[in-house]
Design a protein around this nucleic acid. Structure first.
Lengths: 332, 332
DNA sequence: TTTTCCACAGCAAACGTTTGCACAAACCTT
DNA sequence: AAGGTTTGTGCAAACGTTTGCTGTGGAAAA
């Protein structure tokens, strides 16, 4: 037999499919005796419900979609791991859609979510996304959406981020505490809210600490390679910086590369502090002091919020900002 | 209206649902006139087919599952990126299931694949998996399966790997060419076929080159931290090694950490060569010479094979071994 | 004019479940 | 012993599509 159905079991047991269905779902309306008869036969035949039929009938898919700019090395893997685990533990399944940072793909992915009748969507925005209008098809259908990490300001859906201003405050404060007054800053894609916020925080904290902000000591870069080049340029400026602040792992890697290329010693000749989930700082010796944000926690929290909204335990949009902490490892 | 169905359109246009269906699918049996009438109204109403119903009717899900041990930093992201793109480009969607390296989860995941009626499965095995018997439920149903990266020897399904013996040959040969005769080796989880093969290759190549194999110069480690400790131990052995071979990025990171901790200079005092997809070697200065295997290519090839099997273009199990090449970057 | 054929549209069944309702038998009530 | 309630089962519709078959009107062929 090709794949036993509920109807097959019903026929074999001289029962009605509905009774079999109830028996398998432990519905109280069915006698213990028939229940066991049904379940035993189901077991024996290796029966597994046809989820496609269940989905149609119940009008849901058991799917949660993760819309993400692209798989990259640093922030994502731990976020994914957390999300998958949380989703799995609650009986849903995770489907992943990449936007490759393009708006057009993100729009398509929204449509796919709608077609597949996903029950919730987790979103880390493409850098091309300037607003959230393309999520209307989902929001109109009351599909729960939670934005995380790469978000835009809005108030209609839950979001999970880290406190970007606070994170830079911790970093710059730590550098200042150690006596660093000329600080080089490496920042990412200036289109992203996350970059703008961290940059804003950086300047703000410098001002609070009465450290002059020097245009020539900061730069924006898209990846490690660019970051490395920009870091070299910054290090050539006079008066020379004594420390680097990098807003992401990619840029930290770039900065360290540049420092090593100049054969300068960390932290004796130049200090460095980054923002990281703690993985990449381990690559080096000394390990890199950083402000730690947990990608795992971001993912887990985003998934928990989404599940809360799906279960209607959460009614109003919640905006969670996760705490971070300084991890001193000797590079400052 | 809540979400227009084909029946809604039929009613509004005084047509039969079947005609509407055919019109939307550009079936030739429908007149150009009604076809446009239908398509225009569909457009106007924002009609999107209910994929759940389509799936049930067509008895497929449009889903491809990716069974993976866990999301980790190094090998996986590029593999995922490739797989997602290939799958997406062919109109399927990707669902991801982690096993956390446990057999029990892998078994559950197989069941989930069956229930969701996925049309193909890509597998990188959990380290607990000692055989493939738990994939029987899928193979019995003729669900195409392709194994990649972490595989076990078998002949019933396609597989994609890299040539582990050849890869170590390239590495060790390169070290020997540069005059290194005392080579430290760092290897991963000895349960994995991949580890055993690379270790076998390592010994074999040493023998071919008439370099004595020293037990005290090799070690096994599960992660960077352990790798670093093992590397330190190896470096303390006399006569001292002059070069490291590391079989994975994690271990490369560990070895470099140990070398830096000893304040030894690469490559003047000690050389290092690794196996990598080329990302992590960029972290350092000098960049690390490595044998490059493309995670992206592995993923893309695995996905292509799977799609080939699904489309029945590939009938017999194909075992693809991808080529690798030496990338010289100055650490040897 | 009659026959043949084709283009188009409708009918109805099917995919495998779930679930509201009906109904029979058995069990309590007074 | 008549009525009411519980317990277990069956019937049939529904979820939204797709598709084989049937049927009609009209054009082309004979």
């Amino acid at each position: 037999m090709n794949r036993p159905t509920i109807t097959d079991i019903a026929r074999l047991l001289q029962l009605n499919p509905s009774t079999v269905s109830r028996a398998l779902n432990n519905h109280p309306d069915v006698s213990p005796e028939t229940r066991t008869r049904v379940q035993e036969l189901a077991q024996e035949l290796g029966y597994a419900p046809n989820q496609l039929a269940v989905n149609l009938r119940k009008r849901h898919s058991g799917l949660i979609a993760l819309l993400v700019s692209e798989m990259n090395m640093f922030f994502n893997p731990s976020v994914f791991r957390a999300i998958e685990q949380e989703v799995y533990a609650n009986g849903y399944h995770l489907i992943i859609l990449q936007s490759n940072n393009t708006l057009i793909r993100e729009k398509q992915n929204v449509q796919i979510c709608r077609q597949l009748a996903v029950e919730g969507v987790l979103v880390s925005l493409a850098s091309e996304a300037q607003d959230l209008s393309h999520f209307a098809p989902l929001l109109d259908q009351k599909v729960p959406v939670v934005f995380f990490d790469r978000i835009l300001p809005q108030n209609h859906s839950c979001s999970v981020t880290i406190d970007d201003v606070e994170i830079t405050r911790l970093a710059v404060q730590h550098l200042a505490d150690k006596g660093h007054l000329r600080i080089g800053g490496l920042f990412g894609d200036p289109n992203l809210t996350i970059t703008r916020e961290r940059f804003r925080g950086f300047k703000q904290v410098l001002q609070e600490l009465d450290i002059p902000f020097e245009e020539k000591h900061i730069a924006f870069a898209q990846d490690s390679e660019q970051g490395s080049q920009q870091a070299l340029k910054i290090m050539e400026q006079q008066p020379a910086i004594t420390a680097f602040f990098t807003m992401s792992d990619e840029l930290m890697v770039g900065a360290v590369q540049a420092i090593e290329q100049k054969r300068m010693r960390i932290p004796e000749e130049i200090a460095i502090i980054g923002i990281s989930d703690g993985f990449a700082p381990e690559f080096y010796n000394p390990k890199i002091t950083h402000i730690r944000h947990s990608g795992y926690e971001v993912g887990a929290e985003a998934a928990r919020l989404l599940l809360g909204v799906i279960r209607e335990e959460i009614k109003d949009p919640l905006h969670v900002q996760l705490a971070c902490r300084l991890v001193e490892l000797g590079s400052v």
